[in-house]
Amino acid sequence: MTLDATTLPVIFAALMGLSILLYVILDGFDLGVGLLFPFATPEERDRMIASIGPFWDANETWLVLAIGILLVAFPAAHGAILTALYLPVAVMLIGLILRGVAFEFRAKAPLAHKRSWDAAFFAGSLMTSAAQGFMLGMYVMGLEWTLFHAAFGLLTAGALTVAYSFIGAAWVIYKTDSALQIKAVSWARGGIWGMTLGLGAVSLATPFVSQRLFERWFSFPEVMLLAPLPLLSVAILVLLWKSLRHLPTKGDHFAWFPLAGATALMVLGFFGMAYSFYPFIVPEQLTIYEAASSPESLTIILIGTLFVLPMILGYTILSYTVFRGKATNLSYD
């Protein structure tokens, strides 16, 4: 394989996909924790925060990498997508700001202000999740602002928010025990409804957005090869449903399962999306080949990536190993 104008865009699209996927899963659980804040008592909140404390910053860095790759590898698409999504991007950014700082301020500001910072943490998480969901919907619809598309965007905003809160609850089940864990199981039971509805709505709507997408999904033999995707998703949903009826178990077996299941669903959904849109990066307008930067520059970045990505994965694993096990209260010493 030679590195040229046909292979490089594919490699970078794959890298970008990987970082978006990692972002959605990793920041998904800590955004979800924020979304669940109103349902938790102040003590439970401290524990929930402690469970994400060492990770949230690195999780958000995957967003920076994803947007960075879009920026550096597909500059033309970057401009087109972000100017079209100007408003939801701003909402998301302000949400991310509120969340990130509330996280620090709530522990350092006078005790009397802590509740307000908790509210800011929730509000920021909600703004971020809803804005991302809205952008997803607009993207699927081809980035055109019509009333119908915006309505679809609102639907996906709701769906992604619920999905994040589900994965957040799954994280809390995994990282905590006793009363909080039991509570998290009931949160997850509520969330799975929303997630099923949301996933269903998006999967059903997507093929009807355009003729091209419809043919992609429903022509023969593709439809046979693709069938495992929805079937697997349904199977995982059923298993999740069942597991939530029995959790938490004695000896804390299977506390990891909801998190793993939710992750698997995200992965499947992601591959569905990738299949739908390839080779477009701006739906129906710009392909990855048309939008890519010059091969020389991409090669320079790729060389660095090949060295650095394994290192990043390595120290990420180190950090998850250091902070493995049930979350305890965090302190700086």
Binding site: G53, F55, L65, V308, I312, T316, L318
Partner: peptide, 19 residues
């Protein structure tokens, strides 16, 4: 992003909470 941001972000967790 690759050489700096991830380094900071990951080791910040250990620096702050890992003592």
């Amino acid at each position: 992003i690759m050489t700096a941001f991830f380094l900071e972000a990951v080791f910040l967790g250990i620096m702050l909470f890992g003592a």
